[in-house]
Amino acid sequence: MTEGNDKKDLASVVLVHGQVAVLRISMEASSAVPLEILSPSNIEILTWAITGFSGDRSACPCCLLVLRPLHSDFLGDFSSISVRTHIHDRTFRLHAEPALLTAGEILVLTRAVIAAIEPRNAGSLQLLLPVIAPALDAICLETDERQLTRPDSRTGTVVASGLDFVPFSLIARAAAGYVCEFIQSAKVRTGPEVKIAMTLRAPVDVGGADTVLLVGNGRHAAARIIEAA
């Protein structure tokens, strides 16, 4: 038997939004990295975030798991969940009452979600964008000197400056809320100021938004929207 299999700890469902759920599991003093869901077998981990190991000492160390079903039925009727970590397997008993995310947890979860977005999981993770919108608003203020031309409404072309990585997606607040669109092509222009010319897979109407988030390879950066020259 793998160490920890016979130990049952509590887990709480803190959010269910469409076909995505966020589960909070206790980490005790261990920062074990979650690898996969062993049981129920119809659920996969989209991303995860660990909180409570620094800052507020009153916070309980825990891991937030973002989950989705591999088949049509989500979560279903089960009372426990088994997680494989890089240390050992652990089984958690689901708490009967739903819990709430703290403001700090939402911010940590938001950074994990936007870092994990890629074509294979975007449809699921985008369901969380309305929930994490306040945290996205805060992250979008961290623009520094980065700029992005307003997306062309017909061609979807944009030009970014001040970036030190090539993004593959853009998250912006549109009229109906935050949306994510992928970048179809990108070309780096060298010179006194490095610029990246990109074409979005589909045009995005950012409305009156002042900033956007550019995401790629686990990184993200906010950029101020400027009008194209």
Results as ranks from 00 to 15, higher is better:
Ser41Gly: 14
His71Lys: 14
Thr51Gln: 11
Asn42Gly: 09
Arg68Lys: 15
Ile43Gln: 09
Ala59Gly: 00
Leu70Lys: 15
Ala59Lys: 14
Ile43Cys: 03
Ala49Phe: 03
Asp56Ser: 03
Ile43Tyr: 03
Asp73Val: 14
Leu67Asp: 03
Ala59His: 06
Gly55Asp: 11
Leu70Gly: 10
Pro61Asp: 05
Asp77Ile: 06
Ser54Gly: 04
Gly76Leu: 11
Thr47Lys: 07
Ile43Arg: 08
Ser58Gln: 13
Arg57Pro: 04
Leu70Ile: 10
Leu64Ala: 11
Cys63Arg: 07
Cys63Asn: 08
Phe74Cys: 10
Val66Gly: 01
Leu65Trp: 02
Leu65Pro: 01
Gly76Gln: 10
Thr47Ser: 10
Cys63Ser: 13
Leu65Ser: 02
Ile43Asp: 03
Ala59Gln: 15
Arg57Met: 08
Cys60Trp: 02
Pro69Ala: 06
Leu67Tyr: 04
Arg68Asp: 02
Trp48Glu: 03
Ile43Leu: 15
Phe74Met: 15
Ser54Leu: 03
Leu64Gly: 08
Ile45Ser: 05
Pro69Met: 05
Ser72Tyr: 02
Leu70Asp: 04
Gly55Pro: 11
Trp48Asn: 07
Trp48Arg: 08
Ser58Glu: 07
Glu44His: 13
Cys63His: 04
Glu44Arg: 15
Asp73Phe: 01
Ala59Tyr: 02
Asn42Thr: 10
Leu67Asn: 05
Leu70Ala: 06
Ile45Phe: 06
Asn42Glu: 14
Pro69Lys: 13
Trp48Asp: 03
Ala49Arg: 15
Ile50Trp: 00
Asp56Tyr: 09
Leu46Ala: 08
Cys63Val: 04
Leu75Trp: 12
Leu64Thr: 10
Cys60Val: 15
Ala59Trp: 01
Gly76Asn: 07
Asp56Arg: 03
Phe78Arg: 15
Ile50Lys: 14
Ala49Gly: 02
Glu44Ile: 12
Thr51Trp: 09
Ser41His: 14
Phe74Glu: 03
Thr47Asp: 09
Leu70Met: 13
Ala59Glu: 15
Asp77Gln: 11
Asp73Thr: 14
Ile43Gly: 02
Trp48Gly: 02
Ile50Met: 12
Asp73Pro: 07
Asp56His: 04
Leu64Gln: 12
Ser72Pro: 05
Arg57Gln: 11
Gly76Thr: 06
Val66Asp: 00
Ile43Met: 08
Pro69Ser: 12
Gly52Lys: 05
Arg68His: 09
Ala59Ser: 13
Asp56Met: 03
Leu75Arg: 11
Ala49Trp: 06
Leu46Gly: 02
Phe74Val: 10
Asp77Phe: 08
Arg68Leu: 01
Leu67Lys: 09
Ser58His: 05
Cys60Glu: 15
Phe74Gln: 13
Leu65Asn: 02
Leu65Met: 05
Ser41Leu: 14
Ile43Trp: 03
Phe53Gly: 00
Cys63Ala: 12
Gly76Ile: 05
Ala59Thr: 11
Leu64His: 13
Leu64Ser: 12
Leu65Ala: 01
Val66Ala: 02
Ser54Gln: 13
Gly76His: 06
Pro69Glu: 02
Pro69Cys: 01
Asn42Val: 05
Val66Pro: 00
Arg57Thr: 07
Cys62Ile: 00
Leu75Tyr: 07
Cys60Ile: 14
Asn42Tyr: 08
Asp56Pro: 00
Leu70Trp: 02
Leu64Phe: 06
Ser72Val: 11
Thr47Asn: 12
Trp48Ala: 09
Leu67Phe: 03
Leu64Lys: 13
Arg57Asn: 09
Arg57Leu: 09
Phe78Ile: 14
Ile45Asn: 04
Gly52Asn: 06
Ser41Ala: 15
Cys62Pro: 02
Ser58Ala: 13
